[in-house]
Computed example of a mutant assay.
Amino acid sequence: MTDSVSKYVSKLSPIVDYGTGAFLLIVAVMTIVGNGAVLVAARKRASRLKPPELLSVNLAFTDLGAAVTMYPLAIASAWNHGWLGGEASCIYYGLMGLLFGVASIMTLTIMAVVRLITTAMSHIPASRVPSWTRVWRAIVAVWLYSLLWCLFPLIGWGSYGPEPFGTACSVTWTNSHQSWNRSTFVLLFFTLCVLLPLSTLMLCYARIAYTHYQVYRTLKHHRTISISNQTTRRLTLMSVMVSAGFVVSWGPYAAVSVWSVFCANENIPPFLTLLPCLFAKSSTVYNPFIYYAFSKSFRREVSALKPSCQLSKSSQSDSDNQPAVHWKRGGHLQVLPQPCMCDTVRVGGYLEERGLPTVERTGGPGGSVP
């Protein structure tokens, strides 16, 4: 058997291949159902979408695109105990994986930056307020950036090839230390498409959490507005879960890729190279379930997909127009219309918004917030 053929033969046992195919099938179904629900819900409320919510729609599209264009081929190859289609399908699979992977990571990063600007920055200038034009430009930039990285292996910098276990393809990172071309591509890709976005995510959500803590501590000190501790914990936990999901999904795969730049990986068992790949593929699943677990408005939208659970438009409109509390330097609070992510619902006499709590005007002369 020639090397060009043997590299597409599975290096795993048949039982592991069958298990891998079953796992990917479950991931594909959950991805299609979860992200499909996000897209359908967004379509039903298209006239009421806020500009930053387009980023959530784009993220759902990238995850759904990966499941539709990649997972069927990966499942069939796993159950075939060998890669199907040879080099042409391998390049296609690797390109799709890189395209949707980079687009997903960069969309998550922009979402974190937008949330930081709108919830943790005081005195937001008009030039920084997310608008339809700015969000659309950001989305176009994400796809152009992703496409650029996809083209590099096609023009000779880096390459696409089979994974060490033989039933999937990606950027050729195995034994990168033997090639200056591959090692520079892997290192730069890791820096600009993994390390930098990860650092941005962590810094943004850390700043948001600290800002929430400052606001709640000040409100408690002045006894101006009472906010549910449970709401505070849920908002913070949702941000942490998004960041943690990114780390868990892509961290192991990135670590193995960088390891291959400096060390030989012939002694790494194929099964151990399979696990990081499966973790990375699971990244398409968790976002809709995080939304469902922590966002009451998303649960409302999903429930509205059922005929028996339709909600009136007036109820939706009322909740969308509630004011939001913005922290201002100098110890003052400013009540403004919600700028984005307006998942606002009334809970126990209070109002909450995904990413930023909102409250009713209480206390002070004339019933206004000081």
Rank of each mutant, 00 (worst) to 15 (best):
S6V: 03
V9S: 14
L12Y: 06
P14L: 00
I15S: 13
D17L: 09
F23A: 15
A37L: 09
V38G: 08
V40K: 14
A46L: 11
S47I: 04
K50F: 13
L55K: 02
A60N: 11
T62W: 07
Y71T: 06
L73V: 12
G86S: 00
Y92Q: 11
T119W: 01
A120R: 02
S122F: 15
S131K: 14
W143A: 07
L151M: 15
F152Q: 11
G166N: 08
G166R: 04
T184S: 15
L187T: 01
F190H: 10
T191F: 11
L196V: 12
L201D: 01
A206G: 02
T211P: 02
K220V: 03
Q230L: 08
T231H: 08
A244P: 03
S249K: 04
W250Y: 11
Y253T: 04
V256W: 09
W259F: 14
V261C: 10
F262Y: 03
N267F: 05
T273G: 00
L275Q: 04
V285N: 02
N287A: 03
Y292A: 15
S303G: 12
D320Q: 14
Q338P: 00
V347L: 05
R354N: 07
R354D: 07
P357V: 13
T362A: 06
T362Y: 00
G367M: 12
